[in-house]
Design a binder for these strands. Structure first.
Lengths: 238, 238
DNA sequence: CCTTGTGAATATGTTCACAGCA
DNA sequence: TGCTGTGAACATATTCACAAGG
């Protein structure tokens, strides 16, 4: 049975219905989080001309066990063939469909600093399902300035633009102090998913999802495991 | 007992010794990963003038349970007072010491594209324990060009610079195709921790740690939970 | 042979609930 | 009272190991 079809388990433990209503809550979020990594790696293999792979090969490339990959995929259907492995092209399309990245999502971005510019000019969004359709900034001096193909709009136009595009995804690239208020505006306008580059934790309603990118958090995670060899006599202020 | 002191558990289940030798393997990595978030939030409270907090307040700010915060901290010592909570200033210094970010770490960056420039110019590293001390790029046309206070050096000078600074941390901001070979050069030069912005998985020796930042991975994680409202007729190519 | 898909076993992580202390 | 620190209970995640199929 393929993922997305109607299914009823006889013993009454669970029911799957179309439209990801019950399913979403049954598949562990941590599994969903690995699918994009599988997809990225499979896409790379496909571009290299490879047609088939195995859970073993994929696991070796990713540094995880083959059993984990098989179990993760088994939540959504039976995509492989015993003795052979997985057809890469087929598995890619299946994963794209599951993740709903088999189409183009409009994304709005708030904050036209260095990083905001870098993200708008990043070529890697388009071929993986995302297009930045608007850039906002609160600084009046920046309004109308070009950023890649776009021009900077005032944050007051967020509701209109988000509604016009039916945009559910936003990227926040503003200072930590402004992030919560910007998030409030976006959510008010209808945004349901936020990728937050501001070094802070946002408070949002239950139906809104936030993912965070703070490189310092990840660097500080790594230093725990390093030998102390700091620059002489220089202390951090945090 | 404070973290870092010698400790022996009588029943023979575990021994803690100075210098994070056995300890490092005993404290779950997922706990270490949350400490920087606690530190960031506590620092924010401190800057707001607050002197004391509780696991409850911190948990509310972060959207996690107070029990988890208490258990996480309990791996390293007893930092709180019953009935009162935690002194923010004290807890910050303890966390900085545990994470070894009570000093300044030199970091080298490879890849002087838009994102590389944005990172070099990012003001948020310095006060949280990190300083980018060199920028490398393989494009001969870019050599000698300024990036913030630095100038772009050829990748051939990586061994010398990494050795001079005893630098253990690198940030990779190059295209996915070049990331593995750049990682090899850095590891050869002595780097032990890599923050990888390239959308690929690196293969590294066991004693090298890699953390990844790929915004598309996080966006694709979020789309699973969204309603399908894509831009008309536009399919992604991944 | 090879590889998948999966129940069972194991390992890991989180929460509960309360003793103990300010 | 209010809050910490923690063992015990619970929940979640990963790996093992093997039947079954090409």
């Amino acid at each position: 049975m393929a993922y997305g079809e109607t299914m009823t388990i006889q013993n009454g433990v669970a029911e799957h219905e179309q439209g990801n209503e019950i399913q979403d809550t049954m598949i562990p979020d941590i599994v969903i989080g690995r699918l994009p990594v599988y997809l990225r790696t499979l896409t790379m293999l496909m571009h290299q001309g490879q047609e088939v792979t195995s859970s073993q090969e994929l696991g070796d490339l990713l540094g995880i066990s083959s059993a984990q990959i098989r179990k993760d995929l088994s939540h959504f259907g039976e995509f492989g063939k015993q003795g052979t492995g997985y057809n890469i092209d087929f598995l890619c399309s299946q994963l794209q469909e599951i993740l709903k990245v088999d189409c183009m999502w409009p994304v709005v971005l708030v904050g036209a600093g260095y990083l905001g510019h870098a993200l708008v000019n990043y070529a890697g969004f388009e071929n993986r399902g995302f297009r930045i359709v608007a850039v906002f900034d609160s600084n009046p001096d920046k309004l109308g300035q070009p950023v890649g193909q776009l021009t900077i709009s005032p944050v007051s136009t967020i509701p209109q633009v988000v509604a016009d595009y039916r945009c559910q995804i936003a990227i926040i690239v503003v200072p930590a102090e402004s992030a919560q208020s910007v998030a409030g505006m976006l959510i008010e306008a209808g945004v349901k998913s936020i990728l937050c580059y501001a070094p802070t934790t946002l408070t949002v309603p239950k139906d809104v999802r936030v993912e965070y990118i703070d490189p310092v958090i990840q660097l500080q995670h790594m230093t725990f495991y390093l030998e102390r060899h700091c620059l002489d006599g220089e202390a951090a202020a945090e």
